[in-house]
């Protein structure tokens, strides 16, 4: 069945043959944008990387005209690749989540959180997450994938994904509430 590979937390697209690609664009664009934004933490940079993703994917969309599920998987694959390459080229440093929980909140960071909007506040916290945890959060709350699908594409077990996300969200919430 078309689209079973793409499991999201909200209503799936109508994957019949009558695919309206404008609707598809409007459906996938926010999720990809949010995924990228969660990963890089900057709105404008997220727009650039999202645009790059869509420009690459759009040229080949005719290959998936009858398989939206495959197209969606493919375009998310491009988004992850584009984002990872950007982060790698910008020397995005990694830190373990265990180390993170023992670090006292930086006073400057806390002040910055106070004066920004919700996404910026969240983004500042996300930037402190290790690579794996941030990817999982981005896939879950940006791309809005299910834990099962996230487990499939990351190679983790579903329970492992759930556990990691639970711990991360607890930490983010505690930091959030400490403002």
């Amino acid at each position: 069945m078309m689209g079973t590979d793409l499991e999201t937390n909200h209503n799936s697209l109508d994957l019949s043959e009558d695919i309206d690609w404008q609707v598809v664009y409007l459906e996938l664009l926010p999720r990809i944008y949010r995924y990228v934004a969660y990963r890089v933490g900057e709105r404008m940079l997220a727009e650039d990387l999202t645009a790059s993703t869509f420009e690459k994917a759009w040229r080949g969309r005719h290959r998936y005209r009858q398989d939206l599920g495959a197209f969606s998987n493919w375009i998310f694959g491009i988004a992850r690749h584009v984002t990872a390459r950007h982060l790698k080229s910008n020397n995005h440093h990694a830190i373990s989540f265990e180390d993170l929980t023992h670090i006292e909140a930086d006073q400057n960071v806390q002040e910055e959180i106070d004066i920004r909007g919700d996404f910026e506040r969240l983004s500042i916290l996300l930037q402190r997450l290790p690579e794996r945890e941030r990817e999982l959060v981005s896939l879950k709350y940006g791309a809005e994938f299910t834990n099962r699908y996230i487990a499939r594409i990351t190679g983790l077990s579903e329970s492992n994904v759930g556990t990691i996300l639970h711990r991360v969200i607890q930490w983010i919430r505690s930091e959030w509430e400490c403002e």
């Binding site: 949010r34 919700d118 709350y141």
Partner: peptide, 9 residues
């Protein structure tokens, strides 16, 4: 985790 969705850009 509702605050996570509420914070989506």
């Amino acid at each position: 985790d509702r605050f996570m969705y509420a914070s989506q850009p």
